[in-house]
Design a protein around this nucleic acid. Structure first.
Lengths: 214, 214
DNA sequence: ATTATAAACGAACAGTTGTTCTGTGTCAAT
DNA sequence: ATTGACACAGAACAACTGTTCGTTTATAAT
């Protein structure tokens, strides 16, 4: 069942007007917008649109028009917003996200929640600079999504803050004989040995996102 | 600045009424609901609510009331929904997404649009099985987001359908001396050489998503 | 006790709003 | 040529709607 040009224009106007003003237009506002001088003609066309199921009307009250949804509701996908806090292993100090941190900078990415571990609290992202982790299949330019942690298990991929060097780095974490070994995943690079007191674990990698052609 | 009980009741009614009817109430409908018999009193209270920033009023028109959002609107992030069509290099036939394909299976992921290339049409995802691409830092279990392509450039990471083998595989694509070379990124594996007529390029990898601890 | 302000109230009014009535024009079918 | 359906148009009307006016009551401050 097709619409005339005028009827389509009326629908478009109702949608645009309602979106802007948060209330529907009157008969006269519709008429004015689509060039119909007679309220009777607007009323006639609205009755047709109602009969066809495009709108619903509440009788005799002002602005008693509502659009009928035209497409079935898209099923919602639960997503999570993740602040991208900066870059890692670039030697710059980097703030640790807290439970009430504000988003620094304004870059945020949004992902399907199911891509993250069960606990998606305290999640942030960093962009990797450098190739120290290529054997862990994390390369320069990758985005790593991290979950804030203060403790690490052996073998975890973590971001750690080295207090004496005042820099953050991404490495595999091992605690051996009272010392921390931060192991690159690149055979050309040496591990870092550090006093546990000098190491502050900030987060554990839970997801890696890469553009393979960049 | 506090609200009287009556003013709170008016706000609650406006919110409930608007949610239900999709248009705001009139002065008289408000009065009837909160037990105010005089339109002047309703008008007085609405003016107070407007002054305090709870509502906005469009003057002298019917139903010219709108609620002012009580929390700042979360800035929208444009996202893209990507169907996950299955697994690749598992030897099973895999349908090619077309411009009007339906989502097979019901797994869909949603990502920030800016993570994808400029043209995000005809995008789908596959989960990788196998380690043939570890030197391209794509491992078993990774999700690769692909853009439908029918042609590949040398060096592109692509999914190709091998007609004679009836299987899809993920490899780097090279066209050399009239032959297609599909190059694994794993030094322990041999490239596949194929007649171009036997090879159907399906898509090019534009993003890789990995859980590093799975 | 007095004053100022807030809150309330009914009535009246002007303008808005949707519906109905009567009539005309166009087009397709017969 | 006639008929019926559709679309249109202006006018009139009743009811709706928001604003203003004049007044009263309650409360707090002085």
């Amino acid at each position: 069942m097709t619409l005339t040009d005028r009827q389509q224009a009326i629908l478009d106007f109702i949608r645009a007007f309602s979106g802007k003003t948060k209330y529907p237009p009157t008969i006269r506002e519709i008429g004015k917008s689509v060039g119909i001088s007679s309220t009777s003609v607007v009323n006639y066309n609205l009755n047709v649109l109602e009969k066809q199921g495009h709108i619903a009307r509440d009788k005799t009250i002002s602005r008693g028009i509502k659009l009928v949804e035209e497409s079935p509701e898209i099923p919602p996908i639960e997503t999570v917003r993740i602040p991208v806090l900066g870059r890692i292993a670039a030697g710059e100090p980097m703030p640790v996200p807290g439970s009430d941190f504000a988003i620094l900078g304004d870059e945020v990415i949004e992902l399907t929640r199911e891509l993250l571990p069960m606990d998606d609290k305290n999640v942030f992202a960093l962009q990797v600079r450098g190739n120290s982790m290529v054997d862990a299949m994390i390369g320069d330019g990758d985005i790593v999504v991290m979950q804030h942690r203060q403790k690490a298990d052996n073998g975890d991929l973590v971001a750690v803050w080295l207090k004496d060097r005042e820099e953050t780095t991404l490495k595999r974490f091992y605690l051996e004989k009272g010392k921390v070994r931060l192991q690159p995943a690149n055979p050309t690079m040496q591990p870092i040995f550090a006093d546990p007191k000098n190491v502050e674990v900030q987060g554990k990698v839970v997801l890696v996102i890469r553009h393979p052609n960049k």
